[in-house]
């Protein structure tokens, strides 16, 4: 059994003449926290969308637990064990906090709608299990008290947490977080960092995140990949990345690159 959770091999995503991601190679091992960083428009979210099946890569492969998942539908990929959050929070807005987390467990229901409607003993047992797990997750995230609230009525920080709780409810092996610290102040970011670490240890997860807050990235990541103009320009430990000339040039602009 290899230790590799995710492997992206020569993945390229082309939209007409635009190459959004070019020949991306990356891998993530079990229980690692890996960050994907880069300036705006570098292709980070496109990479996420290729991994989660929203886009089918123009060429290249994505493997989860050594299984090819390239081109699979997003719901099949969720079944296979990848869960994600979105850059611009996508909760089920008009539904309650509890329902949001219950819905994310529907994929593990394993019953037809007939048993659902008839409330068979097996369904009721599963529903109770789903409820208990939702309770466990919401308590862990500190959201149990607001379980009856409508998701869109929560303050921003709580919505972010709810999105993570919802992703965890699908029982993923790999969690993808798209800018989890966006819009957070330093204190909140620090709290989030601790939370992500906690989740990794508690649920034995592997985490890939896109993030712009460098303090969060440097603090949390085991390894970092840096994208610029769709291509990988660096990878390594946080310390290596911090001192990498090309990364600094990509972010701050250098003598030969003043776009």
């Amino acid at each position: 059994m290899s230790n590799r959770v995710l492997e992206v091999k020569h993945a390229t995503m082309r939209f007409g003449g635009l190459v959004a991601v070019n020949d991306l190679n990356m891998h993530i091992d079990k229980q690692e926290i890996v960050a994907l960083i880069g300036p705006n428009g570098a292709g980070k979210t496109t990479a996420f969308n290729m991994i989660t099946g929203v886009y089918k890569p123009t060429s290249g492969q994505v493997l989860l637990d050594d299984r090819i998942i390239t081109g699979m539908r997003p719901d099949r990929i969720a079944h296979a064990g990848i869960a994600r959050t979105f850059q611009n929070i996508r909760l089920f807005k008009a539904l309650t906090v509890l329902d949001n987390v219950m819905i994310a467990q529907h994929l593990r229901l394993g019953m037809t709608w007939v048993s659902s409607v008839l409330r068979t003993p097996k369904y009721r047992k599963t529903e109770a299990e789903m409820y208990n797990r939702a309770k466990e997750l919401l308590e862990y995230m500190g959201l149990w008290e607001v379980r009856g609230e409508i998701a869109s009525s929560l303050p921003y920080g709580m919505q972010r947490k709810l999105e993570i709780a919802r992703a965890l409810a699908t029982k993923p092996s790999l969690l993808l977080l798209d800018e989890p610290a966006a819009g957070m102040n330093p204190a909140e970011s620090a709290e989030l960092t601790a939370l992500i670490r906690g989740i990794r240890d508690q649920f034995h997860l592997t985490v890939l995140l896109i993030e712009h807050h460098m303090d969060v990235v440097m603090d949390i990541s085991d390894r970092i990949y840096v994208l610029n103009y769709g291509g990988l320009i660096a990878e390594g430990m946080p310390a290596e990345i911090q001192s990498n000339d090309e990364v600094i040039r990509a972010y701050l602009g250098g003598d030969d690159d003043e776009a």
Binding site: P74, F92, L95, H106, W113, S116, A167
Partner: peptide, 20 residues
């Protein structure tokens, strides 16, 4: 549970699909 899934689709198709 199926009803909740239907409502999830109504709320946000992309998120619903990502949740399996």
């Amino acid at each position: 549970s199926h009803g909740r899934a239907l409502k999830a689709i109504r709320e946000d198709e992309i998120a619903a699909e990502s949740m399996g």
